Simulated scan of single mutants.
Amino acid sequence: MAMQSSSKTSIFQRFDSYQPSKAVLVWACVVTAVATIVVGFNWGGWVTGGTSLKAATTAGETASRQLASAICVERFRTAPDAAAKLTEFKALTDSYKKRQFIEAGGWATMPGQTSIDSNIAEGCSTALSA
């Protein structure tokens, strides 16, 4: 009996000698690109330009409203009869009436504006109620 030489090759030897075709390389690149896009948009936090614009617009409007509400609260508190007005305001139980009270007092009208933004009045009312 003659001893047979081991003709098994290791995984590393097979990897080193592998010569993929151009088609295999192209498909590997395509699959990698698609996988990267799927992972990026689903778990990586990537967004489209439209989604980004919506988020930025919403954040800007929210920040603007919060600033305007803070100005409204400050104008309310620095009014000459602020203590009496605050007591009168806190006596109101309905949030709609509180917002009307703020609007009627003119505190929700921002400098340079002629109309009242009800969202500013609502934010001011919420802040004063706290």
Rank of each mutant, 00 (worst) to 15 (best):
A23Q: 03
G105H: 13
A82F: 11
Q100N: 10
A56T: 11
A82N: 03
G106S: 03
T109Y: 00
I102M: 04
A83P: 04
Q13W: 00
G112T: 06
I120G: 02
A91S: 10
G49C: 06
A63S: 11
E103T: 10
R14P: 01
N42V: 09
G105I: 15
C72D: 12
A104Q: 13
D16Q: 13
W27M: 13
I71T: 15
S115T: 12
G106Q: 05
A56C: 05
K8C: 04
Y18M: 07
W27D: 15
T62F: 09
K98G: 08
S125P: 10
W43Q: 15
L67W: 00
A82M: 09
T109M: 09
G123M: 13
A28I: 01
C124A: 13
V30W: 00
A2Y: 08
F15T: 03
A83S: 12
A68I: 08
E74D: 05
C72W: 06
C29M: 11
Q13E: 02
L86K: 06
E122F: 07
K90R: 14
T48I: 01
A23T: 06
T62K: 15
Y18A: 04
S64K: 15
W46I: 02
Y96T: 06
S95H: 13
V30I: 10
A104D: 10
A79D: 12
T93G: 11
E74V: 06
S10N: 07
W43L: 15
Q13F: 00
K54C: 03
K54L: 05
T114D: 10
E61I: 14
E88I: 11
D81E: 15
V73Y: 04
T58Y: 13
W43I: 09
A35Q: 04
D16S: 11
Q19D: 12
T48E: 01
S21A: 11
W46C: 02
V26S: 11
P20G: 01
V47P: 01
T87W: 02
I102V: 09
C72H: 13
A84W: 00
K22I: 08
L25S: 12
F15V: 12
R99C: 02
E103F: 04
L67Y: 03
N42I: 05
V34H: 08
A82L: 02
S17R: 11
M3A: 12
E61C: 09
Q100L: 06
K97R: 14
R14C: 04
E122G: 01
K90I: 12
V73W: 04
V34E: 05
L92G: 09
V26H: 03
L53Y: 10
T87P: 08
T93C: 00
F12M: 01
S52G: 14
Y18E: 07
G123F: 09
A68M: 06
S125Y: 05
G106D: 06
P80F: 12
T78P: 06
D16M: 11
G106N: 04
E74P: 01
L86F: 08
G123A: 10
